[in-house]
């Protein structure tokens, strides 16, 4: 890719990434949440790969990494959900943390935590799918 594309995407991907983080962390207060935030975050990574990624070995390694991160995020989500079976009211998916004041950033108990893990999972999953297609295309040539 040309230098213009590289420079612009280097700036833009940071902005896009932090917008994704914003959506993700404010998911319990405003529109957005885990899935939307995760998709935007994945967009930042996709932009970087489109601008810089032409080394297939490097892409393969990245894909391995993102697969592991994706699985770990789901496992953490599951762990937090299943922890409800031992904590608090001993019910699966129970919101066992302090609910707090509505409208504050730290409130709504476990929901922001779930949002964060869903966001990481969605970002990693979408990025993995994208990388899988890219690697497929690179192998063709």
């Amino acid at each position: 890719m040309t230098n213009i594309v590289k420079t612009i995407s280097r700036f833009m991907s940071g902005v896009v990434f932090f917008f994704g983080v914003y959506l993700l962390t404010n998911g319990h207060l405003s529109p957005g949440g885990g899935f939307a935030g995760g998709t935007v975050m994945a967009g930042a990574f996709v932009l970087m790969v489109l601008a810089f990624g032409d080394n297939i070995m490097h892409l393969r390694k990245t894909k391995e990494g993102s697969t592991i991160i994706e699985n770990l995020a789901i496992l953490m989500f599951l762990l937090f959900a299943a922890a409800g079976m031992w904590l608090g009211a001993k019910v699966f998916f129970h919101n066992y943390l302090d609910i707090g004041v509505a409208g504050k950033l730290v409130s709504a108990g476990t929901i922001p935590l779930f949002n964060v893990f869903v966001g990481i999972e969605v970002a990693a999953a979408l990025f993995t799918v994208f990388l899988a297609f890219v690697i497929f295309k690179e192998e063709e040539q």
């Binding site: 899935f35 969605v122 979408l126 799918v129 297609f133 497929f136 063709e140």
Partner: peptide
């Protein structure tokens, strides 16, 4: 709708992956 979108993402990705393999 959010859930259906997520499921649709998985289905479409699977279909396209198979489509690419078929093309190969």
């Amino acid at each position: 709708v959010i859930t259906v979108i997520v499921i649709g993402l998985a289905t479409t990705a699977m279909l396209l992956a198979i489509a690419i393999r078929l093309y190969k």
